[in-house]
């Protein structure tokens, strides 16, 4: 399979913009927040991305950015003499006042805890997540520490 074909097919989907290739086996694109669930469903069912590698939340001040990395285990492109597995990087932008997006944990089981982590550390709300609790920080912790405006005390010793 050609990576360019995949890129064109993906960019024809609803809500997709700015599709580009960042490496020989990686496609990068932006998705509209409202059509994200539809896109991800197609991605899993039609394009064979069966593994959700990572969900990153970035505090871009003012808005939030979610970066999804998906891996295809069985699909590969031939670059030179090697068969490289295909990856996809999807960016979704969220407003600061309403950092909500539809959960994909029903599509990929591996996304479940990535979403919990993004909620825990960055305060992104995933609608439809079965169990959106803090995962790393204790219950009752105030605030979301990876946000840039999170203030905490550093015990700096005086020399």
């Amino acid at each position: 399979m050609e990576i360019k074909e995949l890129m064109q097919e993906l960019s024809a989907l609803k809500g997709v913009s700015n599709a580009s290739m960042i490496r020989d086996n990686v496609v990068k694109l932006d998705i509209d927040k409202n059509s994200s669930k539809e896109f991800f469903t197609k991605l899993r069912d039609d394009f064979g991305f069966e593994h959700c590698s990572l969900i990153t939340a970035i505090d871009n001040q003012p808005e939030f950015e979610l970066v999804y990395h998906f891996t295809s285990v069985n699909k590969s492109v031939t670059v030179g003499s090697t068969d490289m597995s295909v990856m996809m990087e999807a960016h979704v932008f969220l407003e600061r006042d309403t950092p909500t997006i539809e959960s994909i944990s029903d599509l990929w089981g591996g996304a479940n805890w990535h979403e919990r982590e993004a909620f825990d550390l960055m305060g992104i709300y995933f609608v439809g997540h079965p169990d959106l609790r803090r995962v790393l920080l204790p219950e009752g912790f105030a605030g979301h520490p990876l946000r840039k405006d999170y203030v905490y005390e550093i015990h700096e010793e005086e020399w």
């Binding site: 069966e50 593994h51 959700c52 590698s53 285990v73 990929w108 089981g109 591996g110 996304a111």
Partner: peptide, 8 residues
């Protein structure tokens, strides 16, 4: 298939 979906 489970492993791929669950992220193992």
């Amino acid at each position: 298939a489970q492993a791929q979906n669950l992220g193992i």
